[in-house]
Design a protein around this nucleic acid. Sequence first.
DNA 1: TCTGGGGTCCTAGGACCC
DNA 2: TCTGGGGTCCTAGGACCC
Length: 418
Amino acid sequence: MSISPRTIFHVDMDAFFVSVEELFDPSLKGKPVVVGGQRDERGVVSAASYAARKFGVHSAMPLRTAAKLCPKAIFVNGHPERYREYSAKVHEVLGHFSPLVEMASVDEAYLDMTGTERLHGRPLQAAQRLHDSMKSNTHLNCSIGIGTSRLIAKVSSAKAKPNGVFWVLPGREAKFLAPLAVGDIPGVGKVMEEKLHAIGIQKIGDLAKLDDRDLENRFGKWGLALAGKSRGEDAGGWFDNEVGENVDPKSISHEHTFDEDTGDAERLQSTLMRLSEMVGRRLREGGYFARTLQLKLRYKDFTTITRAHSLDQPTQMDHHIFEQTRRLFFANWKPGAPVRLLGVQASNFESGPGQLDLLEPKRDERWKNALAAADHLRDKFGEAAIGLARGMKGGFRERIHENPAALPGKGKKKRPEA
DNA sequence: TCTGGGGTCCTAGGACCC
DNA sequence: TCTGGGGTCCTAGGACCC
């Protein structure tokens, strides 16, 4: 705990995906634009322009719903490479303002600005400069929230939107939060919100009046964290790590929803192979060896199961991943049942491969070489260049789209171990 | 309206060990 | 016999975020 309060910035890009698309196609400007796929596709909205939002379109809404609400909307497929490129530009701009920058996702970041006054001036002045610098270097707008904690910075950046700055003075945290809805607390979603409403809590101020122990008794660990959050602290959970500490991922996964549900075993297996390759590739890129492999299976009616298996020896090889997930698949799939989604996840990372195959010491070595060659080819000629036999069966190759929002640095992070 | 994809964290029960 | 208690690992599911 430091004695003088920290100064945290939360920088959130305004309608990031849409704005980037507008840079590539200026004719989109001012129009209702929906990024995430075509109007008749399965899938949800990744981002909507402000013009589209006026019709009630918002992110996470099914594309087909958006099309009904706003028939004139222009539907655009996402361009992950573009977002990555611009995210890197954003990161670079931010790096000129503080050495402690943490990209929380493609389009938002935390900066610890504590102690930068002599360089960049008082918070509002620094924010103004950052804003201008962002605009001139990336041609993108951002909103900036300033506070003494991540939580306050995050909540105030939402109040700053669009294209503004919002500063909560040190000592005014609880006062700022009190009139806001409990659902405005990051981490309080629909379910928690309803539970809180059920006991008569609507505003964050109502929450702050409750006893910490009472909240802990009702909601466990989360309840205690909530008590702190109601006062503006980064108490508990993922929020209270230092800004700028980058942490290794805990899991790597890929999943695919079929355009139409399928019960075709060959097609399902070839998809599983593709997903296994994608996961294996990323394990090798990151130098991770996974001990736990998980299959995800979603049926037509949306019921979803996950089945996991932990290996004796960690792996990063496609065929190990495929072997396990295929086994799990056939042990759980009702043959012929229409499948909506398949997913493959690797977790429980270890730094090395452990013991190699003692019976066939050359086998894994050969695989490793083959995979390295395949990785190299893909780098050179693109993802479709090569695939293991199963993935190619019958000339069919499941096309799997990369998710524009799925870029490094996402999600919640835990405090790194000392 | 018919529900993506990639993550993190939490809970809870059972196995297993001492 | 009328049954501990803690620790850790594994698995499954679910809330939540962008």
